[in-house]
Amino acid sequence: MLLDLAKLTLNLTPDSLALRLVDALASRTQRPPLDQVQRDAINQAQPLRYGTLASHTAWCWGEGPLVLLVHGWNGRAAQMAPLASHIAEQGYRAVALDITGHGDSPGARTQWQFFRSDLLQLLRALEQDIHTLIGHSAGALAMMAARYTGEVEASRYACICAPSHPFPPIEVIRRKLAPRPAVIQRYQALIAEQLGASWDDMQAGAFYRGLSEKTLLIYDQDDRIVSHQEGDKLSGLMPTAQLLKTQGYGHTRILTAAEVKAALTEFVSA
């Protein structure tokens, strides 16, 4: 009923108002429940407050060089917690944050710009150089955008199910709301502004250019949200990057895969 009403409204309103409606609907977030493995891993962590008035939450495991983990859209730090706990056991300080509108951080909505700004606010609170950045899906894309704009720098980058550019939300909006092409173009421009590059540059893979063998790309062949062929595309831009493909996990369960844990451990420690 809500989607039908939204479709009708989009067809009857000017492009500027239609854009506001699309953005309002697309920015709503959901918080997935924790399973027992995630809960156990989070319980091992030390909560860390960051952001304006210390309103946001991150989780810290261990001591040593900093490994920062960024969840995806509609994800939460707890999804990265088992990986973070395992990495900390190898002698690292692993930190996973809840972005605005996710996990234990405030808000019922989020924006692409929050992924960038929250990451920067956390880094100011940590006061430590980044050894490795690990991101999942939208979190990976946003952290690479922050690298592209010069806001973030790490020795190593690991991208799990990372889209080359922010096409997944566009596909969802087209499928569910069917807005006019002009509204889609405006929404693409809005996302591009928040991520710090033009849509054409993002589509060409600008966020991933200029990286070397200190980059790990991980995709699952059964992912229905971000195709594993995105890994092939990005490998073409970074011929020396490592590419790992799994099978049978999909977009989120890949974070629990034993081969992913092993690959990340080797990559971080190499």
Rank of each mutant, 00 (worst) to 15 (best):
E151K: 08
M143A: 01
F167K: 09
V152L: 13
R147H: 13
S137I: 09
C161K: 07
M144Q: 06
A154N: 08
H165V: 13
Y157F: 15
R147C: 10
S164L: 14
C159F: 08
M143G: 00
E151S: 11
I160V: 15
P166Q: 05
L141C: 08
A140H: 01
C159L: 15
A145R: 00
P163V: 13
V152C: 08
S164N: 06
Y157Q: 06
A145S: 10
S137Y: 08
Y148E: 07
P163W: 10
T149F: 05
A145K: 00
S155L: 14
S155N: 11
L141K: 04
Y157H: 09
V152P: 01
R147F: 10
A154C: 08
C159M: 14
A138Q: 09
C159A: 15
C161E: 09
A138G: 08
M144V: 04
S155H: 12
S164V: 14
C161Q: 14
A154L: 06
S155Y: 10
A158R: 11
A142D: 01
V152R: 08
A142Y: 02
R147M: 10
S155G: 12
A162N: 03
P163N: 11
A145I: 04
A146R: 00
C161F: 02
A162C: 15
E151Y: 02
P166C: 03
V152I: 12
P166V: 04
G150Y: 03
A162Y: 02
